[in-house]
Simulated assay, not measured.
Amino acid sequence: MRILFSGRPAYGHLYPLLPLARAARDAGHRVTIATGPTFVPQVAEFGFDAREAGTSIGVAEAEAVQRHPDGPVVAVMATMFADILARRTLADLGPMLEVDRPDLVIYEMSDVGAAGAARRAGIPAVSVTIGRSMPAEARGFAAPSFDWIWGGDVPADPMLGDACLDLWPAGLADPVAAAVPTRFPLRPVPWSAPAPPWTSPGRPLVYLTLGTVSFSATDVLRAAVSGLARLPVRVVVAVGPGDPAVLGPVPANVQVFRFVPQGRVLAEADLVVHHGGSGTTLGAAAHGLPQLVLPQGADQFVNAAALAAQGSGLELTGDEVTPEVIAECARTLLGEPVHRATARTLAAQIAAMPPPAAVVADLAGYATR
Score class of each variant (00 low, 15 high):
residue 21 A to Q: 07
residue 74 V to L: 08
residue 244 P to W: 10
residue 273 V to T: 04
residue 122 G to D: 12
residue 16 P to A: 01
residue 233 V to P: 01
residue 237 V to P: 06
residue 65 V to F: 11
residue 327 A to N: 11
residue 9 P to S: 14
residue 99 V to L: 11
residue 183 R to F: 11
residue 335 G to Y: 12
residue 127 S to L: 00
residue 260 V to K: 12
residue 41 P to G: 05
residue 313 G to S: 04
residue 296 Q to S: 06
residue 333 L to Q: 02
residue 299 D to M: 11
residue 301 F to M: 05
residue 210 L to K: 05
residue 256 V to S: 02
residue 359 V to N: 08
residue 174 D to E: 06
residue 199 T to K: 05
residue 360 V to P: 00
residue 73 V to E: 13
residue 364 A to R: 14
residue 169 P to T: 00
residue 197 P to L: 13
residue 267 A to F: 02
residue 26 D to N: 11
residue 78 A to F: 02
residue 197 P to M: 12
residue 248 G to M: 10
residue 24 A to T: 09
residue 46 F to L: 14
residue 280 T to E: 03
residue 302 V to I: 12
residue 233 V to Q: 04
residue 274 H to D: 10
residue 81 F to M: 08
residue 316 L to T: 07
residue 70 D to H: 15
residue 150 W to E: 00
residue 81 F to D: 01
residue 200 S to L: 02
residue 357 A to Y: 03
residue 343 A to V: 01
residue 27 A to N: 10
residue 130 I to T: 14
residue 266 L to A: 05
residue 184 F to C: 01
residue 3 I to K: 10
residue 28 G to L: 07
residue 280 T to I: 05
residue 88 R to S: 12
residue 258 R to A: 14
residue 109 M to R: 03
residue 9 P to V: 07
residue 369 R to P: 00
residue 367 A to Q: 08
residue 118 A to S: 03
residue 353 M to W: 10
residue 229 A to Y: 08
residue 306 A to F: 14
residue 301 F to A: 06
residue 56 S to V: 02
residue 228 L to K: 00
residue 106 I to L: 12
residue 51 R to N: 00
residue 229 A to L: 05
residue 64 A to S: 12
residue 179 A to M: 04
residue 262 Q to G: 02
residue 125 A to I: 04
residue 107 Y to R: 00
residue 150 W to H: 15
residue 347 A to S: 14
residue 270 D to R: 04
residue 51 R to P: 00
residue 10 A to C: 04
residue 255 Q to S: 12
residue 24 A to E: 09
residue 14 L to E: 04
residue 226 S to V: 00
residue 68 H to T: 03
residue 179 A to E: 08
residue 358 A to F: 13
residue 36 G to W: 07
residue 335 G to F: 09
residue 38 T to Q: 07
residue 5 F to T: 02
residue 74 V to A: 11
residue 1 M to P: 12
residue 348 A to Y: 03
residue 80 M to Y: 08
residue 223 A to Q: 14
residue 1 M to C: 05
residue 157 D to Y: 07
residue 278 S to G: 06
residue 273 V to Q: 02
residue 330 A to P: 00
residue 300 Q to L: 10
residue 137 E to N: 06
residue 215 F to E: 11
residue 41 P to M: 14
residue 117 A to E: 05
residue 327 A to C: 06
residue 111 D to E: 13
residue 282 L to V: 03
residue 150 W to F: 04
residue 64 A to V: 04
residue 202 G to C: 02
residue 28 G to C: 09
residue 335 G to L: 08
residue 266 L to Y: 09
residue 133 S to N: 01
residue 124 P to Y: 13
residue 286 A to E: 02
residue 267 A to R: 00
residue 52 E to G: 09
residue 55 T to F: 12
residue 32 T to H: 11
residue 338 V to E: 14
residue 261 P to N: 11
residue 213 V to K: 05
residue 136 A to V: 13
residue 340 R to K: 12
residue 187 R to D: 08
residue 310 Q to H: 15
residue 239 V to Y: 00
residue 236 V to H: 05
residue 124 P to R: 12
